[in-house]
Simulated scan of single mutants.
Amino acid sequence: MIQLSLVGIGTGHPKHLTFQAAEALRAADIVLIPEKGEDKADLADLRRAIAGEVLGDVSKLRPFPLPVRDPAIPDYEARVSDWHDRIARVWDEAIGPGPAKVALMVWGDPSLYDSTLRIAERLAAVRSASVEVIPGVTSIQALCAAHRIPLNEVGKPFLVTTGRRLRDEGWPVSADTVVVMLDAGGAFEAIAPEGVTIWWSAYAGMAEEILIAGPLPEVSARILDTRAAARARHGWIMDIYLMRRA
């Protein structure tokens, strides 16, 4: 039997780790560390640093190479499903035979725009495994905290979507507040900017955090320039933004 703990570790700040998350890491026999290549090596290093701070002894850390999506599969959902299947097989190989308590540190929270739970279901389908989820601080929380803003207006809903959907479908009709994640860059250019205020963050919660806020027509070009420069400097970028219409 594998006991798999999906541990939300927040957005990169070691103090985001909850007591429950620290206990799960200490109880594990194996802590899996995904490696995404040299250009994102600092993400793996952050996980190692967090684990080292909690565990002291890092001998239980077990890195594994994270597969990439197959660009030859044209359908987006089929491409993602194939990717998840291959990641589950890599997990299985990294864990090895026999029973074990396994922890996987998940950026942010496992419930929000993260595939770890779906991959865990695939692993459980081929091995006897139980799964528990340890919630973590999300990038949405880190964004709102850094800008000192509430997520929603009084008595009103908000909507969380992706850059791809914002670009393809425009502003969602069901909310005046929209949080955009997984944007490849500048999806807000697809909407009418008048009357929209944006709060943008890159590397939310990390030491490298960058914040820009203001009326969208006034700050959109600065966000795009800052984003491009930060990506060139680090080799990767994770950003998120909240937009509100007057």
Rank of each mutant, 00 (worst) to 15 (best):
D42P: 04
E169C: 03
Q3A: 15
R69S: 05
M238D: 09
A190Y: 06
P97L: 09
G195P: 04
Q20I: 10
L211D: 07
K101A: 15
T197A: 13
R164G: 10
E93F: 00
G136S: 11
V90C: 07
P172F: 00
Y241Q: 12
G12M: 08
Y113K: 07
P74C: 07
F64M: 13
R118P: 06
G195R: 09
A51G: 07
G195N: 08
L6Y: 03
M105N: 10
L66G: 01
M181S: 07
S5P: 06
D176K: 08
D42E: 14
W83E: 14
L25G: 04
L123R: 05
K15M: 11
A120F: 03
D92V: 15
Y113I: 07
S115E: 10
S115V: 11
I237A: 02
V173E: 14
I73K: 10
R79D: 05
R231A: 12
S81A: 15
H147C: 08
V196H: 07
L182M: 15
L43A: 01
L242C: 14
P193Y: 08
M238Y: 01
S115C: 13
E209F: 00
E132A: 14
E53D: 12
A21I: 11
T226L: 06
A24P: 13
G12I: 10
A72M: 03
I119N: 13
G56E: 12
W107Y: 15
D109C: 00
A184C: 07
D109K: 01
S130F: 00
G170T: 05
R127F: 06
I191A: 08
P215I: 03
W236P: 11
V90Y: 02
P67L: 12
I87Y: 12
H16K: 10
I212Y: 02
A27I: 05
G136A: 01
G136T: 09
P110Q: 09
T177E: 02
T226F: 06
A246V: 08
E209A: 12
